[in-house]
Amino acid sequence: MIVTATTTDPLTAADRCDRCGAQAYVRVVMPSGQLLFCAHHAREHAPKFTALATHVQDETDRLLAEHGAGAGAVR
């Protein structure tokens, strides 16, 4: 889902990943709008959106603070 209004306000629990609906921790702003991603999908799609993005707001460091040391573990 692409949203045409862009913002860099902090992401909240109401912000959901455009791929899976999980809580979004990354906002990718592009000339055509923005995409929101959970940490997993942000890592998966980073090679694609990095070249197109005008701004990437990455709040994945909040996962450690909110959910503990196991939250960022790669499985």
Rank of each mutant, 00 (worst) to 15 (best):
P10A: 06
G70W: 13
A71H: 09
A39P: 05
D18H: 09
A5P: 11
P47L: 08
I2Q: 15
L35H: 02
D18I: 04
V3K: 13
A53V: 02
F37Q: 03
T6G: 06
E44W: 10
T6N: 08
A65Y: 11
P31K: 00
T54A: 01
H45L: 14
T4Q: 13
T8H: 03
K48E: 14
D61T: 14
A22C: 07
V56R: 05
P47H: 03
S32E: 12
G70Q: 15
T12S: 05
V26N: 02
I2N: 13
A71I: 08
A24T: 00
T4D: 07
P10D: 04
D9Q: 10
A13M: 10
V56P: 02
F37P: 04
R27W: 00
A5K: 15
A24M: 01
R19A: 15
R27A: 04
Y25M: 12
A14F: 08
F37I: 00
C17M: 02
K48C: 07
R27C: 07
F49C: 01
G70M: 14
T54K: 00
F37T: 01
A65P: 07
T50S: 05
V28I: 08
L64K: 15
V26L: 05
V74N: 13
A46F: 12
G68C: 04
H40V: 09
R19W: 09
D18V: 05
E44H: 13
A46L: 14
K48G: 07
M1L: 15
G68I: 07
V29G: 00
R27S: 06
T6V: 13
R16F: 05
A46D: 09
D61F: 09
A39K: 05
F49Q: 00
H67T: 10
F37M: 00
M1D: 15
G21M: 07
P10N: 02
V74Y: 13
Q57P: 09
T8D: 07
A69R: 11
P10Y: 07
V3M: 14
T7P: 04
V56D: 06
T50P: 07
T6W: 01
T50C: 04
P31W: 00
P47E: 00
D58Q: 09
G70N: 14
G21L: 06
A5M: 14
H45W: 12
F49K: 00
R75I: 14
G70I: 12
T7G: 05
V29P: 03
Y25S: 06
A53F: 01
A13W: 09
L11F: 03
Q23H: 10
H40P: 02
S32R: 09
A42S: 10
A22P: 06
T54H: 04
D61E: 14
G33M: 07
D9G: 03
M30P: 01
Y25K: 08
T54S: 03
A73T: 15
E44N: 10
D58Y: 04
V56Q: 03
